[in-house]
């Protein structure tokens, strides 16, 4: 079976210099209904990889396939046509900056279907309402502007926007890191349901390893533009093989008390 998303040998260079490769031969696949966690420090290339997949960063080499169809070579009208299908959706890191402050929540969610030219305005509104309900938001919030929502609500609106076009692949950049636990749990449950009920392939960039431990099937670890480790989530998180992954996991704070280094330096 072909994966919903298949990126292979992806190279992204900074300018024209082969020496400054942001991504150096990175592969990433996500099957329908699978959640893949993408982890790594700032500058490791996580966001660039997501941007390359959706065509926002130019590939120097490699391919990206969606349901087996190459999309990385698309240009001009072909690219626009593909984007309009909405098959790959990208939820950006900062919901406040990715929502138009002057557009109401409902119009914002209905924008994707409108660009695609789906049905009539009333149908599109109905679809937007359904998308809001799917992420657990009261459709009554639809009349509000993004500035009048909480951080957790805004994050869910950005996900609803992506869902309104019925994507096959959903890429999310740090969707829960800034949320408190209750909002985080809500977003994670929404993602889990999407993968089960609608078989969306989900790639979630996160430095919140605890969240990934809860919902990811597989974890891919990027370090300086290369995949240094990947495997089933439980294996990577419980028995990390790569030294960088080990350091990452040792850094996760626990509610049960200070990590050893804190204890040493605290009175």
């Amino acid at each position: 079976m072909t994966a919903a998303l298949e990126a292979d040998g992806v190279e992204v260079w900074l300018g024209r210099r082969a020496k400054s490769r942001i991504l150096d031969g990175v592969g990433l696949t996500a099957r329908s209904g699978e959640i893949v966690g993408l982890i790594g420090e700032t500058g490791s290339g996580k966001t660039t990889l997501a941007r390359a997949i959706v065509g926002l960063a130019p590939l120097h080499a490699g391919t990206v396939r969606v349901d087996g169809t190459p999309v990385s070579g698309l240009r001009g009208a072909e690219l626009r046509r593909f984007r309009r299908t909405g098959r790959v959706q990208y939820v950006f890191q900062d919901p406040l900056r990715s929502l138009d402050p002057d557009v109401t929540v409902l119009d914002s969610v209905a924008e994707g279907p409108a660009i695609r030219g789906d049905g009539r305005a009333a149908d599109r509104r109905a679809r937007a309402v359904a998308a809001l309900e799917q992420v657990g938001l009261d459709p009554a919030l639809g009349d509000r502007l993004p500035g009048r929502l909480s951080g957790g609500q805004r994050q869910r609106v950005t996900i609803a926007r992506a869902l309104a076009v019925d994507p096959r692949v959903l890429l999310l950049d740090e969707p829960v890191s800034a949320l408190d636990a209750a909002n985080r749990n809500h977003v994670l449950r929404v993602l889990d349901r999407l993968r089960r009920e609608r078989e969306v392939a989900i790639v979630m960039i996160s430095h919140d390893l605890g969240s990934l431990a809860g919902i990811a099937d597989r974890i891919v670890v990027l370090y300086r533009g290369r995949v240094v480790e990947e495997g089933p989530a439980a294996r990577v998180l419980l028995e990390p093989e790569d030294p960088y992954t080990q350091r990452l996991i040792a850094s996760v704070p626990s509610i049960d008390g200070p990590r050893p280094t804190y204890a040493r330096s605290t009175r």
Binding site: D180, A181, A182, R184, N185, L188, L209, G210, S211, A213, G214, I215, A233, A234, L237, L238, I249, V252, S254, I255, D256
Partner: peptide, 18 residues
Amino acid sequence: RALVADHREYGLDRLATR
């Protein structure tokens, strides 16, 4: 209690017991 339970719902600690 709810805050703590929400926090503990996801986390690395849960993996070992899953």
